[in-house]
Amino acid sequence: MHTRHAGFRLFAAAGIVCFLTVFAAPPVSAQSVPTPAPSWQSGQSTWNGSGYETLPSPPSINELPDEWNDNFGLSDAQLQQPVVDLPLTDPGGASGAPPIEPIPEPSMPIGAAIADGATLDEPPLREEIVRWYQVPWRWMTKGWENHAEFGLDGSSGNAETLAIQTGLEMKRKTDLYTLALDIDYRQASAQSQTTEDNARLNLDYDRMLGDSNWTMFGKFGIEYDEFKSFDLRLNLNGGLGYYWIRNDNTNIVTRIGAGASKEIGSPDDSWTPEAVFGLEADHKLSARQKLKAKIDYFPTFEDFSDFRLVTDVAWESLIDSSENLSLRLSVTDRYDSTPQGALANDFYYSALLLYKF
């Protein structure tokens, strides 16, 4: 028993001596291989036997010249122009094919060509085909200023009234002529009884005479009114006109001529010779507003006190450019000195919504 304890004590003492020998031994000499330095110190320090010494910073290598920093490494030498000014010929020209045109002189940069207005006309991707039934509509819309108009008002209660006005205006203006078409229709009722039902159509044509401001004009009109003594009134007139101003913003023209009128369905339905004096003007107040006025005076040749006078004044204002919607406030007066039992004067005023196309 004592021998087993003595052997255990001897084994423990030997283990302690080995531990002290391995872990408490003095540092190895300078001739011993030092422990490798950490990776972050590689190349930056050295072992001196008792510690690490930091090495001095290495000298700069391959100092870049100032030209590199100034020009980012690009040389000051000018780039040589490629040799492209030699005319090229078609190698198959001997076989009869025309030679290739020489390459243009490259001295002019593309920027100068663009500044001079050079453009590249690209051929269309496909040919446009117009059907026969599309021709009238294309002619009626290309180069025209057109709009449809509509107005509605009414009341109910003690008095039931309803008034409707619709219309269409089409105008084509070129350097050679001006063609205008105007159609209006009005209908009104009170207490379920029709109190107004009339329509009119006017077709005006002006043809410029050369480069002068003089013009030849023609007028054709049809008027219908249920409450007049005639069923239809026709008038045909022509003559000379003079444009005092004619441009995209302002037009003022006076007209003088002659013609005849006929009242179909009236007690006297014969053609009546008459003269015509007219004044028409329109002016764009701004990009969104426009004024229009028109006066036509039709006296008979036999008696100038027997006449018709038609006056139209309108103001238009653009409401929505994206939808081509405008508001028109208009006043119309039609006077007939021989109403044949009806009132001589018809006065209309309206607020209309216009759709331009």
Rank of each mutant, 00 (worst) to 15 (best):
P26A: 06
D282Q: 11
T89M: 00
G93M: 11
A115W: 12
F357R: 06
E274N: 05
D312G: 10
G117I: 06
Y242F: 01
S42R: 10
A148R: 00
T332N: 12
A344P: 11
N202V: 11
M108P: 03
Q134V: 15
P34A: 09
I264Y: 09
F72M: 13
F23I: 06
A112D: 15
F19D: 00
V22K: 05
M1N: 12
M208T: 08
E223P: 09
E149S: 12
A97G: 09
I252P: 02
G238P: 05
N251I: 04
Y177M: 06
R172C: 01
D312S: 11
T161F: 09
I164L: 14
I252G: 04
P136S: 13
R4Q: 13
Q80T: 13
G93W: 06
D184H: 14
L203M: 07
D268V: 14
G341H: 10
K262H: 09
P98L: 02
T332Y: 04
S75D: 09
W139T: 00
R172N: 08
R4E: 13
N71E: 07
W244C: 01
S266R: 03
T89K: 00
D121N: 10
V310R: 15
R138Q: 03
P123W: 00
P339S: 05
S32R: 05
F11Q: 08
F277T: 01
F230I: 12
W271P: 04
V313N: 08
A25T: 10
H147R: 12
L181I: 00
T54A: 04
